[in-house]
Simulated assay, not measured.
Amino acid sequence: MELEFLGTGAGVPSKQRNVTSIALKLLDERNAIWLFDCGEGTQQQILETTLRPRKIEKIFITHLHGDHIFGLPGLLSSRSFQGGDTALEIYGPKGIKEFVQTSLNVSDSHLKYPLSFIEITEPGLIFEDASFKVFCERLDHRIACFGFRVEEADLQGELQVEKLKALNIPSGPIYKKIKDGERVTLTDGRIINGKDFIGQPIKGRIVAILGDTRLHPNCYTLAQNADVLVHESTFNKSEAKMAKNYFHSTTAQAANVAKEANVKKLLLTHISSRYLGRAVHELQKEAQEIFKESRVVQDFECVPIPLKK
């Protein structure tokens, strides 16, 4: 599991930062990519990475402001041109279906894969399978906006190889049966229960990705005990009044959410183009004074999310 930031800027593209898009790479977990927001130029950003559009399985849209959705029609069309033929789902506020379908219809664009829309009308669980759950909550922005929480199911514990070797059980195909928890009869007649040789379950990871928002109680709800929190940080702490007026957050507010919600790592994004060079380091410093494990991310930065062992 890994996050790759395709755009980390706010409002409009700049030479330093493109507008918002984040790829959650689940290549080991399900050979797929989940995209969060798709600002203008996202497919151009993808060309600078190893990401393959055909592997994008789901796209989660936080809200319908242009810097979060204007890249969608082009990306969806290119995915079709490049041989993508597997189904794709788009989750987002009411209106995302109309926006995409109108763009495709007016431009006479035809997709070669099934495209479906899940328009969010109520917060809560919006996706679940055996491996993952995705929850959403409303945030406080000028238009309907959501934050997402991705929870991975706990994973099977590791095979206790040393314990098997201590019983003189040689490695080989039998190890797979043991790892699968089967009862196995050894060549010497001993019967062992595979479940006795599996370690404790490995706790699944939690990733919280918030859309644009003022400080709001749901920020804490989404972030609770997350391994990684991606939080907008459009303004520095001295511009808290401006942040409130424009329905955004400051570095200090994001850091306090991370601290109070017991987050392990805070990644700050959606940075205003007014902050360049040293000013970006000051943003990071402000956050780190409150929550040490804070970082302002850059375009194309990759952040692995390791399993907890």
Rank of each mutant, 00 (worst) to 15 (best):
D67Q: 04
A130P: 00
A130F: 05
H65V: 15
H141L: 02
K112D: 13
V100R: 02
E98T: 13
P123K: 12
I118W: 00
G83Q: 04
K133G: 00
E137K: 11
S80A: 14
F117S: 03
L139P: 01
I90P: 02
L125Y: 06
E137V: 02
E122C: 11
I120C: 09
S77V: 05
I96Q: 13
S131W: 02
F127W: 08
L75N: 05
H68S: 12
T86R: 14
H68G: 13
Q101R: 15
V106I: 14
A87F: 10
F81V: 10
D108P: 00
T102W: 07
P123A: 15
G84E: 00
S77E: 11
G74H: 01
S107P: 00
K133D: 00
I126H: 03
Q82C: 09
E98N: 13
I118P: 01
L125V: 10
L88T: 04
S78H: 09
G66E: 11
E137R: 15
L115C: 07
F81I: 10
K112Q: 12
L115W: 11
D140Q: 08
L75R: 08
E119T: 11
E137C: 02
G66Y: 10
Y91W: 07
G66N: 10
Q101K: 15
E137L: 04
I69A: 06
L88D: 05
S107N: 14
P73L: 12
I126S: 02
K133N: 07
K94R: 15
V106Y: 09
N105C: 04
Q82V: 09
F127N: 02
F127D: 01
S107D: 04
C136F: 04
S116F: 04
